[in-house]
């Protein structure tokens, strides 16, 4: 397969309560092998997926949030977070994990993966994609 498409995974739901977030992350990890131009968007309750310090011990479910930190190693390094969704929930960037990737073109310099964008900016990013997977 030689085609490269812009593929975006849109995450709109809380990490627990339903399985959408976890099974979305599974698609992202598998999809990374296809060498497409991949990006992720987190909006609505989906922003909770990236919060740090998640503790699932009380609900008997696996805490899969450490997996997000590995995305940079899968060359998944364009992560867009909807600013308004954060604000509506009383969250700031400081409440989220610090996700980074290493840029091999700049001597493996560590760079931020998360881009905080306004809803209008995110709308432009969405419009620029070839494929949107909505979870």
């Amino acid at each position: 397969m030689s085609k490269t498409k812009k593929m975006m995974y849109i995450n709109r739901k809380a990490p627990y309560g339903t399985i959408y977030a976890w099974e979305s992350l599974e698609v992202v990890l598998i999809g990374a092998a296809f060498e497409q131009d991949v990006s992720l968007a987190f909006m609505d309750d989906g922003v909770y997926q990236l919060t740090k310090g998640q503790d699932t011990s009380g609900i008997g479910m696996k805490n899969f949030s450490p997996t997000y930190a590995a995305l940079g190693d899968f060359e998944v390094n364009k992560i867009y977070v909807d600013k308004e969704s954060l604000e509506e929930r009383g969250l700031t960037l400081d409440d989220l994990q610090h996700l980074v990737w290493e840029d091999e073109d700049e001597d493996w310099a560590e760079k931020d993966s998360i881009h905080l964008v306004s809803r209008a900016e995110l709308s432009d990013v969405l419009a620029d994609q070839d494929v949107l997977f909505n979870f």
């Binding site: 397969m1 085609k3 498409k5 593929m7 599974e26 698609v27 598998i30 999809g31 092998a33 296809f34 497409q36 070839d130 494929v131 949107l132 997977f133 909505n134």
Partner: peptide, 17 residues
């Protein structure tokens, strides 16, 4: 596998969820 979904996204004109 999930690769079948990604392949569908690559090979198709439109992917509808």
């Amino acid at each position: 596998g999930l690769g079948q979904l990604i392949e569908g996204g690559i090979e198709s004109d439109r992917t509808i969820v």
